[in-house]
Amino acid sequence: MTTLIVMAKECVPGRVKTRLHPPLSLADAARLAQACLDDTVARTRAVGERRVLCLQGSLPPIAGFAQVPQVPGDLDERIGAVLDQVRGPVLLIGMDTPQVDPVLLQRLATEWPRDVDAWFGPAADGGFWLLGLSELPGRSRGDLVRGVPMSRSDTGRNTRDRLVRAGLRVRDVPELSDIDDISSLRVVAREVDPAGRVASVLRELRREGALDGVVVPRGGLVARRGAEVA
């Protein structure tokens, strides 16, 4: 039974997407963060047999998702803790890639090859957007992440190297950009579902003059890119 874990935050102004301020106000940055969470939930609602929101803060119940609190500490500790709480194969993502391809995730959840111990999705900023781990009996999956410095340009490389040094057979999936700042927002805006919440909020912000030059096209790119697994 594969579990999808989404690392998420309560979208309180001043606590989420603060690197979008300016040009966005803290309230608008939080509104966009909520839209990212909404789209991520909508696109992953059918992925795997069990879905868990690992939360900083609190949210109302969301259909199809259990909720567990994030432990105190740095991000590596928080990821490590939830990996150790869940049995069976896991796919862990964040809420910052609302363009994520549900078809790709469902393939990874249901067609886990015998020669793959870990799925790894690099992020364009040097981090990672996906970490998938098989059961690994007798081993702490959380220890594969604890101690890796997070939110750095070498976080992804160091995390993948940690998996390889642990003897895991790692297979890569396509790189994605996550929304960290205005530059990455411009990239992701071209890939989100035009009918989704992020696209809707971006259109509202553009009408309000808060995001000149951010383009939301009619069609996305991720569904085409996501079909390829290295």
Rank of each mutant, 00 (worst) to 15 (best):
C11G: 04
V12M: 02
P13N: 02
R15Q: 12
L20D: 05
L26P: 00
L32V: 10
A33I: 07
Q34D: 14
A35R: 09
V41H: 07
T44V: 01
T44S: 15
A46P: 00
G48F: 09
V52M: 09
L59M: 14
P61L: 04
I62D: 05
G64M: 11
G64N: 08
Q67E: 08
P69M: 08
I79M: 11
A81G: 06
V86I: 15
V86N: 04
P89K: 03
P89L: 10
I93M: 03
M95P: 00
D96W: 08
Q106S: 14
R107P: 01
A109V: 07
P113I: 03
R114S: 12
D117T: 01
A118W: 03
P122N: 15
R139C: 02
S140Q: 06
D143H: 06
R146H: 08
G147V: 07
G147S: 11
G147Q: 12
V148H: 08
V148D: 00
R152N: 13
T159A: 05
R162D: 00
R169D: 02
I179S: 10
L185Y: 14
R186N: 03
R186P: 01
V188E: 10
R190A: 11
V192M: 10
E208Q: 15
V216C: 06
V222A: 15
R225P: 00
G226C: 10
V229R: 08
